[in-house]
Write a protein that binds this DNA or RNA. Structure first.
Lengths: 116, 116
DNA sequence: CAGGATCCCGCTCGATACTG
DNA sequence: CAGTATCGAGCGGGATCCTG
């Protein structure tokens, strides 16, 4: 499994190309959507849930932790009365946006081709 | 599940953004690697298996079919004595390469940041 | 409001064996 | 060589409940 190597039982040699590791940044079903939602600016937890309706809180939380740990986004806790947390793309995270836009562009044209 | 909607039981409304559908093009664990391996030119089935060691024949076959159907790559059967099949990126498929390169670039710098 | 804990499901993938 | 068929495992994910 290239997107995430966690099994020690994996007998196969690691793929030489580093694409796998890099793609892991947008792995999981929702990571790309999170980055996408953050591209216009910082968002709070429930705002992200609203942006991406079908995502569950658990998975959103998991993806946010993962992306934060990878340095794609930052987490700012506001010590207000109802605690609120703001997530924002880091500089490096922001650089993923053009790439996603390019993929969306191509995907769009592929779809047009499909639907006739 | 945004990358692929096949369950009819999904009660949630489809996400308005089309990112999901577009990301489906490089979904699955290996699609990106396949595109990556093809970026330098056409490759045969077993060459791809060699390029991406841990992939199984079954999954490679499945991904190739999917990518062909989506219009990302083309399949050319050579009627030689040992049958050989060449896979190559289509024009649209080729346009995904810069996007992948951008992601790899960012992923690389993220990794450097991680490892210190 | 933000998210952790738990349970369960199903897709994706790997291994192996087999076909044209 | 280029796949397909079958089997089984594991991880990602959804639903629900619960906490600070």
């Amino acid at each position: 499994m290239p997107l995430k190597v966690r099994k020690n039982k994996s007998p196969s040699p690691p793929p030489p190309c580093m694409l796998s590791h890099c793609m892991a940044v947008i792995s999981g079903a929702w990571a790309a959507n999170v980055i996408w939602s953050l591209r216009a600016g910082p968002r709070r937890f429930n705002e992200l849930r609203t942006d991406i309706p079908p995502i569950s809180a658990k998975v959103l939380s998991a993806r946010l932790s993962e992306l934060e740990q990878r340095g794609v986004l930052s987490r700012n806790v506001q010590p207000t009365s109802p605690p609120s947390v703001e997530y924002a793309l880091t500089d490096l995270g922001g650089e993923l946006v053009p790439a996603l836009e390019a993929i969306v562009e191509v995907g769009h044209r592929l779809k047009m081709r499909d639907d006739g």
